[in-house]
Every structure is written in structure tokens, then in C-alpha cells.
């Protein structure tokens, strides 16, 4: 079980139109229970890699295998996206509903769950985040740290098999970072986290991956 592969990326190549390649024959094997930290300078393709894994961008060439199956089309990704809790760099991109409860309910609603069950999920996720009583708070009134926690909650409410986080600690104070670390640890999920904060990565990950600039 421990050697089961969650995501396998092989020979991935990607370039934005009219720009140099960002990913050059990139390879990654993510085994179950691994908590991977992804580091590297700005513009090296970290976020791009995450978007490719989520099927939000299309690679020029290469293979992406998720949960034991190769994923190519939008259709393939649609089926598994809710199983991969993705947390965007900017919580304002992720939280688009008027209230916290609406945002936490958005994923479960898409999965077709019933109202009562969704209500339970919302309560449970808020408890996990330590944000009890935040259901009807207006999203734009939240602090940056609260927004980030709710954004993670909006991924957790899907009950995903893994988490992917793009620079979750950016602009957070140390107290909120500590809370975030707690949430990650308690989730019990394998995750891949992009960060420039090496001490943070040391604390929360089991393996470090460095993407180097493509100098070719």
C-alpha cells in the first residue's frame, strides 16, 4: 500500500506561447503518503506544473498519470479533480461565494450531495479549521489568514484523496502559518506544497523537490 503511486508525471514539456520552455522533460513520482515540498525560483514552472496536473493547462508532450490512469482530455480530469483538493495561491480566486458556508458547500453541491449532508460537511470542515461559527461570515470581510484557511477548507469539503497547495504561506503571519501546519498535519492526507519558505517545507514535508531553471 505504501508504495502505491498517486501521481506519475513523465517527460513533461510545456511552454507558454512565444516564451521559452518552462518545463523540460519533467518527471515526478508521487507515492501515497508522501508529503512533497516543491521549491524553485520564480517563473521556473512550479504553478504551471500544478495547473498541468489539475488539467487546467495542456502540456505539449509528456504523460500524466493520476490514480493509476493516464489523463489526457478535459473529461478525464473532470472525473478526478474533486479528489485532488487544489488550493490556489490567491484565496480571492478560490473563494467566490458571498459567504463562507456557500464556498464550503460549492464543491459538495457539484458532487450532488443533499442539503443535510452538506450542512454536516460544512460544520465538520469549519471545526477542523478552528473556524466554528464562521458559516455566515461574508468572505470579503475575512482577514487574509482566515481566507487562506477557508480556501483550504473549500478543498477539504470535497473529501479529497490528496491536497495540492500553491504557496499557502505567502503573506501569512507566523501564527496563521502554525494553524495551517496543524490543519495539514491533521488532514492525514498526502500533499504537494509549493513554497519559497524552506523552514516551512522542512517542517511539513517528507521529501523536497527542486525545480531548476531551464537554461537550454
Amino acid at each position: 500500500m505504501s508504495s502505491k503511486v498517486l501521481i506519475e508525471v513523465a517527460d513533461l514539456n510545456f511552454a507558454y506561447p512565444d516564451r521559452p520552455k518552462v518545463l523540460n522533460n519533467f518527471n515526478l513520482t508521487w507515492r501515497a503518503e508522501e508529503r512533497i515540498g516543491l521549491a524553485g525560483p520564480n517563473g521556473v514552472g512550479k504553478s504551471t506544473l500544478l495547473f498541468l496536473i489539475m488539467g487546467l493547462l495542456k502540456a505539449q508532450s509528456g504523460v500524466i498519470e493520476i490514480f493509476g490512469k493516464q489523463r489526457r482530455e478535459e473529461k478525464d480530469f473532470q472525473a478526478i479533480r474533486p479528489q485532488m483538493g487544489f488550493v490556489f495561491q490567491d484565496a480571492n480566486d478560490q473563494l467566490f461565494c458571498p459567504t463562507v458556508a456557500d464556498d464550503l458547500a460549492f464543491g459538495p453541491l457539484n458532487l450532488g450531495l443533499g442539503h443535510d449532508e452538506i450542512h454536516r460537511i460544512v460544520e465538520r470542515v469549519l471545526a477542523r479549521l478552528g473556524l466554528m461559527g464562521f458559516e455566515h461570515r461574508v468572505t470579503y470581510d475575512l482577514s487574509g489568514g482566515e481566507k487562506k484557511l477557508v480556501a483550504i477548507g473549500s478543498a477539504l469539503s470535497l473529501n479529497p484523496r490528496l491536497l495540492i497547495l500553491d504557496e499557502p504561506t505567502a503573506n501569512l503571519d507566523p501564527v496563521t502559518v502554525a494553524r495551517l501546519e496543524g490543519v495539514l498535519a491533521e488532514s492525514g492526507l498526502p500533499y504537494l506544497v509549493v513554497s519559497h519558505d524552506h523552514e516551512f517545507l522542512d517542517r511539513v514535508t517528507t521529501r523536497r523537490l527542486e525545480i531548476r531553471p531551464n537554461l537550454s
Partner: peptide, 24 residues
């Protein structure tokens, strides 16, 4: 740009073009 990212974030949470409302 933000609209694009919001849409991507919605896709990541299983959005397939139907907007559901959390109310009964």
C-alpha cells in the same frame, strides 16, 4: 485574468457548468 483563475478554481471543485444553490 482573475475571471480565468476563478473559473479554474471552480473547475477544480467539480464545476461542470451547472450552478447549484446551497439553500432549501
Amino acid at each position: 485574468d482573475r475571471a480565468g483563475r476563478v473559473h479554474a478554481a471552480m473547475l477544480c471543485r467539480g464545476y461542470t457548468g451547472r450552478f447549484w444553490f446551497y439553500d432549501h
